[in-house]
Design a protein around this nucleic acid. Sequence first.
DNA 1: TTTTCATATCGTAATATTGCAATCTGTAAA
DNA 2: TTTACAGATTGCAATATTACGATATGAAAA
Lengths: 107, 107
Amino acid sequence: MGASKTDQFSDQQNKIASIAKALGHPARIAILEVLLSKNDCICNDIVDELPLAQATVSQHLRELKLAGIIKGSVSGKTICYCIDEAVFKTLTDFLGHATIQIQTCKC
Amino acid sequence: MGASKTDQFSDQQNKIASIAKALGHPARIAILEVLLSKNDCICNDIVDELPLAQATVSQHLRELKLAGIIKGSVSGKTICYCIDEAVFKTLTDFLGHATIQIQTCKC
DNA sequence: TTTTCATATCGTAATATTGCAATCTGTAAA
DNA sequence: TTTACAGATTGCAATATTACGATATGAAAA
């Protein structure tokens, strides 16, 4: 074995996990921060601001795209990356609901 | 290479990423859901409710513990696991701030 | 003390992720 | 067209994660 037993869990659980997983790397958090801080979100800017090679950044962007967190649209010679608020919200909602349910620990 | 270049990113970025990473597996989402749904959070219950072997569940609990998301305190023969609201909040806050900053995409 | 039960840890195999150089693709300028 | 540039993809090596059987640990019950 070694592979995740994703089929044993609900779609909801897998969905939330995959979004969280996509956020589970400092480079991807850094990418989001760059996207958030700019109006014009061109990939080259991101590469310039990260301590990683172009190929690696492109790969991280792919992960974020696969999880649905960002969307990229071709804009001439460059690509415009934007955050998809809706998908982002799936995780926020889960965390919100969870937080409400947290009880004072009896132990 | 292959290892994460964590030292190239800020403590904040690493912290948020590590919490998100810990949530990045459906089994760990399922574990949290079990913990949230019960007042008495004994590990054995968790094992019973997950489609994974005891050793595997224990390992997932360890990951959540390492990320600071849950805390386990020995309670006689069993262990009581509880969610740490504060650490949980670190991610919620990041997502909250991010959401506010999201701008309508110009592209 | 021996047994039993709950959980952790170890060892190991399968698979996934991370990172980068090199290369490919597609667009716009020359 | 050729050139140049922005990104994506490929291939590969290093490392990390996932899963589980087997075993260890530690506490209460017998």
